[in-house]
Design a binder for these strands. Structure first.
Length: 792
RNA sequence: GCCCGAGUGGCGGAAUUGGUAUACGCGUUCGACUUAAAAUCGAAUGGGAAACCAUAUGGGUUCAAGUCCCAUCUCGGGCACCA
């Protein structure tokens, strides 16, 4: 007996796809292109999890959907391979990150192939491949040339566990995003990218993006533009003037004291001698305080500097204080306190008994110069770690940085025996003594002559986010040896039409926009936004609603689901059916069975009905006659004529599935297919029904659908619906009395828009007459809703 | 604390511009097939005997409210001393 055996069917088709590589993408001028990608995965040793499957399947459904509509589709794949997990694994086991990464990629690739994704496997990239990171270093050098990559000594977040600095975006609630350890502040000289240069453009262009509002809001908050003014306050005893930033320069009459951040750069020059010890102690305490302590305890603390400034508006002498409620990195690190207007200043004034003066407002521009500030800081990119892209810089004997010439790229990661950071703030790269030395050409400014000079390499590596800030462009020409991205290829394929992910709302998605704008300014990219549409999907949780985690032992392994006999098609279709794409969902093993039953029904429908002759939709003249026979259609009776009912439900389903996929309502698209199959079981399926079913099913369950189409001898071109088949000859009209449903009238379609006719039939109905005996005050007829409401 | 978003059967979730609430799936029950079970197929399934009552709670607008307005409660997310 011919049964649905998913593992057999899937093996057959995967073998075919592997041999034929049907999803190779090539530029076809004149054919509309569609480029889709997921946020590429970090290939962990644990292999694919169900979250990856959701992520990849969303991309796959859209890829196949557009491919079946004969657009020129590109769907590449890649791996984000630098980072701490591989390095920590190396420290623990001694296995080099390069080797472990290669093993993990091989496993990921194998697993992805078992899910039947329509990937162009010739466009596979890996950020730790020297062929790739050579160009990451090239990107760094472009930024360096324009002064957008620079070094600065400042207080930075330091993770004592991972022995590295972190970007602001990588500190979550005062803890390291990787290991969860509380971060500390450490003063270090570090590399930065000047993302703040693009703050305005990054902010202003958010609104036009076809991205989820949630992400757009998060990015806006992160950039955090405030419009205000800088105002200079002269000090009374010869110390340098203090510039404050305020959004309310109009409240200056109420400024009764100044407050400086503990890290305020010129603090030492301001403090009076008798207060020096107290201020030094306060500063030391403030730096020791962790971010968590600072957040949890918002009780105001502070100390008087012993110095005074002059309020330029009132000419009054006002005291200067130091307090950690003023942040060093924002504005100028100094504020004018207006306790009458500002809640925090008031709290501080009350605690330390400082004057609170009610204020009248003055003209905003009277005492200051307009100034815009941002919460966003420059992007700190140095990492004191081994397993990352080496920063292509060397230092001369005076410690001045020099870029590594482009023809010396890539700066390879040296092999070392011990991957541990050395506790001195330098990465394990510092242990590769030979590698550290490098000859760099230097041009003498006086003579114009170039000579080689021995220098010492930078031992920091780049933040992994730098590697993922340009990978979408590499997909356009993944093996190009001349360009990071080929100008012709990029012009054809990009920007990315649809990008799918579940993380990195501010970090990655902000960085990639920044690089895009920079490289557009440099003439390397013909667009300023890298991603047209973003789909940000929810997580899949364990059946109990909790996050899946190895330690809790509640992880569902997708390969187990497949190997249990359900197959990849069931897994994929289930994950699309599980709920709205943007919401988190809980795994339900029983619902997986429900989806399997559905696919099984599709298969059985085919084996029962596949032999039948194809039948197009009946012509209008035949419809009336066939409508009769469809009424009496036996269950899957093979001798009944193809009915107009089939035609109506077929076209209705085509329309529903097509529009749902366009709107990314994958769950209701699958539901519509289930309804269609249920209906076909009742009225009988024609070959045409089966072909349409297989075509619509293919994005979700490509193996089964391919099998069906092969047996039905049909291609997979996406079907179109015709509105004329969606109009029934009979229409149901709802009759309400006082808004309550009282009767449904089956009326010929031609009469359904005729108000008089509908009323006549309604009043003739005995179910209605019960309520209308006392007369009808008002009758509202809504043809659009096929509804008549009688008010009695 | 501030700013968003969401509360619908036993469960996951459907419902165009306000217009038949509960699509689809799970679960449950019954039936067919079978020595039996599984699988498959069919039927029923918000509550209530009924009138009726039900979309977190209480009001409001409307011929008509899950959908709009006001208040309250709960949950989720984001921001969190950003001057």
């Amino acid at each position: 007996m011919d049964r649905y055996e998913p593992l057999k069917i899937e093996a057959k088709w995967q073998e075919k796809w592997e041999a034929e590589q049907p999803y190779r993408a090539t530029e076809k001028p004149g054919v509309p292109k569609m480029m889709l990608a997921e946020m590429f995965p970090y290939p962990s040793g644990a292999g694919l999890h169900v979250g990856h499957v959701r992520n990849f399947t969303i991309v796959d459904v859209l890829t196949r959907f557009y491919e079946q509509q004969r657009m020129n589709v590109m769907r590449p794949f890649g791996y984000d391979t630098f980072g701490l997990p591989a390095e920590n694994y190396a420290i623990k086991t001694g296995v080099s990150p390069k080797v472990a990464t290669a093993t993990n990629i091989a496993n990921f690739r194998k697993q992805a192939k078992r899910l039947g994704f329509a990937i162009d496997w010739s466009r596979e990239i890996n950020t730790s491949d020297p062929e790739y990171y050579k160009w990451t270093q090239w990107c760094f050098l472009q930024l360096y040339k324009k002064g957008l990559a620079y070094q600065k000594e400042s207080y930075q977040w330091w993770c004592p566990e991972d022995q590295t600095v972190l970007a602001n975006e990588q500190v979550e609630n005062g803890k390291c995003w990787r290991c969860g350890r509380e971060v500390e502040k450490k003063k270090m000289k570090q590399w930065f990218f000047r993302i703040t240069e693009y703050a305005d453009e990054l902010l202003d262009e958010i609104d036009a993006l076809d991205w989820p509002e949630k992400i757009k809001t998060m990015q806006k908050n992160w950039i955090g533009r405030s419009v205000g003014a800088e105002i200079d306050f002269e000090t009374t005893d010869g110390a340098p003037k203090i510039t404050v930033f305020t959004t309310r320069p109009d409240t200056i009459l109420g400024a009764t004291f100044l407050v400086l951040a503990p890290e305020y750069p010129g603090l030492d020059y301001i403090v009076s001698d008798d207060c020096r010890d107290a201020v030094a102690k306060y500063k030391a305490d403030a730096l020791k305080k962790s971010e968590i302590e600072r957040q949890e305890n918002k009780e105001k603390t502070g100390v008087f500097t012993g110095a005074y400034a002059v309020n330029p508006a009132t000419k009054e002498k006002i005291p200067i204080w130091v307090a950690d409620y003023v942040l060093a990195g924002y504005g100028t690190g100094a504020i004018m306190a207006v306790p009458a207007m500002d809640e925090r200043d008031r709290e501080f004034a009350e605690k330390f008994d400082l004057p609170i003066v009610e204020t009248e407002l003055v003209d905003r521009d009277l005492y200051g110069t307009p100034k815009v500030t941002y919460k966003m800081r420059d992007w700190l990119i140095s990492r004191q770690r081994y397993w990352g892209c080496p920063i292509p810089i060397a230092y001369d004997k005076d410690g001045n940085p020099h870029p590594i010439p482009e023809d010396q790229l890539p700066v390879m990661i040296p092999e070392v025996d011990d991957y541990r950071p050395d506790n001195s703030g330098r990465s394990a790269l510092a242990k590769a003594k030979d590698w550290l030395k490098v000859e760099i050409p230097v041009t003498d400014p006086k003579t114009g002559k170039t000579h080689m000079e021995e220098m010492t390499r930078e031992t920091d590596t780049l933040d992994g986010y730098a590697c993922s800030s340009w990978y979408l462009w590499r997909y356009a020409s993944p093996h190009d040896t001349e360009y990071a991205w080929n100008p012709e290829a990029i012009k054809y394929w990009e920007p990315v039409d649809v990008y799918v992910g579940a993380d990195h709302a501010v970090a990655h998605l902000l960085y990639i926009r920044f690089w895009c704008k920079f490289f557009a300014d440099e003439g390397f990219l013909p667009f300023r936004e890298p991603i047209k549409k973003l789909i940000y999907h929810g997580y899949i949780n364990a059946p109990d609603g909790k996050k899946m985690s190895k330690s809790k032992g509640n992880v569902i392994d997708p390969l187990d689901v497949i190997n249990d006999g359900y197959g990849a098609d069931t897994l994929r279709t289930y994950e699309m059916f599980i709920g709205p794409v943007e919401l988190d969902a809980a795994w339900d093993p029983r619902s997986v069975g429900g989806v399997y039953r559905f696919l099984n029904r599709c298969y059985n429908l085919m084996t029962d009905k596949g032999k039948e002759s194809a039948a197009a939709c009946p012509s209008d003249t035949l419809r009336a006659a066939q409508a009769k026979s469809s009424r009496s259609a036996e269950h899957r009776a093979t001798d009944s004529l193809p009915s107009s009912e089939n035609c109506a439900i077929r076209h209705k389903t085509i329309k529903k599935v097509t529009t749902d996929i366009h709107k990314c309502n994958f769950n209701t698209a699958v539901a519509a297919l289930m309804e269609y199959v249920n209906e076909l079981y009742k009225v009988g399926a024609t070959a045409e029904d089966l072909v349409v079913l297989a075509k619509l099913l293919k994005p979700f369950a490509p193996h089964l659908a391919s099998e069906m189409l092969e047996r039905l001898e049909a291609d997979d071109e996406w079907p179109k619906w015709d509105e004329k088949y969606l109009v029934d000859e009979n229409v149901e009209i709802v009759v309400q009395v006082n808004g309550k449903l009282r009767a449904k009238l089956n009326i010929a379609a031609d009469d359904a828009t005729n108000e008089d006719k509908v009323k006549e039939l309604a009043f003739a109905d005995e179910r209605i007459q019960k309520y209308t005996a006392g007369g009808v005050k008002k009758a509202i007829f809504v043809p659009r809703a096929k509804l008549l409401n009688l008010v009695v």
